[in-house]
Amino acid sequence: MLIQFLLQRYKMKESIMKAHMPKVVYKMHRENFPEILGRATEHMELVFGLELKEVKLSGHSYRLVNKLEIPINRSLSSGWGLPKNGLLMPLLGVIFLNGNCASEEETWEFLNILYVYDGRRHFIFGEPRKLITEDLVKEKYLVYRQMRNSNPPRYEFLWGPKARAETSKMKVLEFWAKVNDTVPTAFPTHYEEALRGEEERARARAAARDGPTARASVRSRATSSRSSHP
């Protein structure tokens, strides 16, 4: 109920008054409102890429801010003005954390935690299966393919070329860590892999921009990013 209320305010571009939010939930649950609000805001960020931020000038209201790292394609926007690719960052995280390749079973298990179910229409995302196996694949954010030597056929998800171009493993890991209230280094193996990816991207940018003379400084710049994550 609280999530529906927040999304409605976002759609209408209206302020979210602190005093109004507890009244949205049943009276019997209002004593647990801080916990309910915490779970709702976590869900909003993970599923929709929206962060609830206090309006400092008034101190009496909130606003929802789009936190998605990936640009929103109009073809992937819902009638609510919300990004239908809001699921993409967490999906990329699941793929990354499962060895850069997530089976369809692992993917749906994760989506079920977010109350997104195969065969059940979602009020924002529409038909989830179409979204992740057709729309996001067509936009080249995901690759959906049959697993090798699977009989009967089983399928898996990988990052698509557009995802690799528009975001990075480090950004996805930072997103995943924030949602889990931790830091990227809490996932040491994946952090090292993400760091190597940052170094490779830095080398590629330097080579394209400055040629061979810039390569000597790339390693030091990439290595300095280690200090930015405690």
Results as ranks from 00 to 15, higher is better:
120 R>E: 04
210 D>A: 12
116 V>H: 01
129 R>L: 05
57 L>Y: 07
164 R>S: 01
88 L>P: 00
145 R>S: 14
55 V>K: 14
24 V>Y: 15
164 R>F: 03
183 V>T: 15
157 F>K: 01
228 S>D: 11
45 E>A: 02
143 V>P: 12
165 A>W: 01
7 L>N: 14
163 A>E: 03
162 K>D: 01
224 S>V: 04
152 P>E: 01
210 D>L: 12
18 K>R: 09
207 A>M: 08
57 L>G: 15
91 L>R: 02
24 V>R: 15
190 H>P: 07
213 T>N: 06
155 Y>I: 07
183 V>C: 08
81 G>N: 11
120 R>P: 02
8 Q>M: 08
144 Y>S: 02
214 A>Q: 04
172 V>L: 07
110 F>A: 00
86 G>S: 12
174 E>W: 09
31 E>C: 06
86 G>K: 03
226 R>D: 15
91 L>D: 04
95 I>K: 04
170 M>S: 06
172 V>K: 08
70 I>A: 05
92 L>I: 06
28 M>H: 11
182 T>C: 10
74 R>W: 15
119 G>C: 07
202 A>C: 04
65 V>E: 06
9 R>C: 07
117 Y>W: 12
212 P>Y: 02
37 L>Q: 11
116 V>M: 02
83 P>C: 05
105 E>F: 03
122 H>A: 08
35 E>Y: 14
108 W>C: 06
73 N>M: 06
49 G>N: 11
198 E>R: 08
103 S>M: 06
159 W>L: 07
26 Y>S: 12
7 L>A: 14
36 I>A: 03
218 V>K: 06
64 L>W: 04
68 L>F: 09
52 L>D: 12
88 L>G: 00
95 I>D: 07
46 L>I: 09
42 E>M: 00
181 D>R: 09
133 T>Q: 13
21 M>K: 14
113 I>R: 07
